[in-house]
Design a binder for these strands. Structure first.
Lengths: 140, 140
DNA sequence: TATTGTTATACTCTATAACTATA
DNA sequence: TATAGTTATAGAGTATAACAATA
């Protein structure tokens, strides 16, 4: 049967435990939000909060190369969730959610809220707050 | 310049913050341990703690398909860090660290310990303990 | 019949280098 | 000269389906 493997030095490592927790958190989420990955939904949230943001600034914000952003925006534009509009500086594309993009995002945010409650269900409100605070110290 | 993007609904989400923290934790680690990714080093730790473990059980432990494990073990065997030995059940390969694998793992563990101190440097011992505990509640 | 390792294949996400148009 | 977007290309990392050997 399935006697668990010995974990060796892993369990005490913050990096390892962060990865485990992150994998656990995203396990059922990935396929659950309108066929978009967590990263893609994150982009919709950022575009929604920063209408007209350029591809390069969006790439910076999520620490990706700007060439990577091209295909990602192609994909979102192909789904009619995002549109590019040429900026005053004609080198740039400003990004905007379409009406469909805003509608999908609204639905996604409801799913995300459900999901958040599910993964936080093992924590009290105080523990959840404390966890966010401690994670902030590491990410900052 | 670089006025930060508005983050919209993201900052309050555990899943998002877990991902940020995990990315921050692994940013400089990935390329730093003997040319092996964190995941690969994790496998060496698991094999070391479970000598003779089969490919399938190792795949289960890290939630990957067993077909994925074939190439991974090929890679580690190609670097002479791991060896396959046919088991009593002749369908199976038992996995073992080579002498070189154990030596590399020992070096890697020292690097990992340094790294752990670096990412935990913003936390007190009590905070670090508390964070591991809270992460455990989510992953369990 | 079921399991283990394997192969062939394909998909996703990412980066680097070089190009163009604009500034 | 420098920047924004783009293209071509490549490399990880992963999965699914089918197969042979073995249980």
């Amino acid at each position: 049967m399935n006697s668990a493997l010995r974990q060796g030095a892993l369990p005490d490592l913050l990096g390892y435990r962060l990865r485990l927790a992150q994998q656990a958190a995203f396990r059922d989420f990935a396929a659950s939000v309108q066929g978009l990955s967590p990263g893609r939904v994150g982009l919709l949230i950022l575009i929604d909060a920063n209408p007209g943001v350029t591809q390069s600034r969006l790439a910076e914000a999520v620490r990706r190369d700007r060439s990577t952003m091209v295909g990602v925006v192609d994909q979102l534009e192909g789904k009619r969730l995002v549109e590019r509009r040429q900026g005053d500086d004609r080198r740039t594309n400003g990004l905007w959610l379409t009406r469909a993009g805003r509608a999908l995002l609204a639905r996604a945010l409801r799913r995300i809220a459900q999901h958040e409650r599910r993964i936080a269900s093992r924590l009290s409100a105080a523990e959840r707050h404390r966890l966010l605070q401690l994670l902030g110290k590491i990410s900052g």
